[in-house]
Amino acid sequence: MRRRFALLLTTVIALGTASLAGLQPAPAPPSGDVADILVSRQLLESQDLAVGDLIELAADPDGARARAFRVVGSYEPLPDPARFTQQRLEVRLHLQDMVDMLADPTDPQSSESVSAINVALHDPEGELEFRRSVFGRVPGLSVWSTVRGDSANPFVVLEQFHLAIAIVTILASTAFLLALMVMRSDERRETAGILRLIGLRKGRVLTQVLIEGVIIAMVGAMFGIGLALVAQDGFNQFFQWRYDTALVFVRVSPKVAAQCVALAVPLGVVASVVASWTLLRREVLALLRR
């Protein structure tokens, strides 16, 4: 089976990854050795490819100077939160194959020169020093950092946005919980009155309410975490299907679960105690009065 792809090179990374667009009728097989290539799972599925198939890639959208490759396997592209809506129609080829394919036949130096190099620093803090050093050695070479500050990083901004939503949700839930607990306490007004009537101290009744509040809050928190775990799977499965990606959209980590418990239990207990205290501060007869 032979296919020919017009290659639109938009991204180049370590081993050479090319994004592809367009499928054209396959021409006659090229002469000489056929290079190996890996294709992304999405490309494999969308073009109905199989291991062993021959495909043609070209840097030119018109398919000029196409080269043949043999599909030797597929891979799952590294999930990228910044690109999850893009269809990952990609290939991985050997760097030399890519250089050859991109070389300009009219310029013999084209395969010997690069217009840009990405450099990863072991110590990102040394970025300024590195820039000065490079600029000092090769005047005229532009050096800039691709690292974004927190204010420009969409994920940091997104996290802050989530934090704001979480705070508002917690405040609203606390008010709702308090209202529920007050109603629940009021339903037990007579019970509290009877307990006080037969001689139980306020502190004793409050302790009982406190223990009850802790248990309810713990059970509630566990239920919430269980619900989040179930929802997490459903949510991930849906969006992974929707965007055809292996990206994990939601993860209930132990830290997140611990934070939930650490917030929910004290809030539940405080809501129980505040609600109960509104009852217990009343006189016994006021509690028993209809």
Partner: peptide
Amino acid sequence: SRIRLTQIGFVFQRFYLLP
């Protein structure tokens, strides 16, 4: 409260039992 618990017993018209 302690006196009510140990020294005084109450019987009311509405019984006031814990349901």
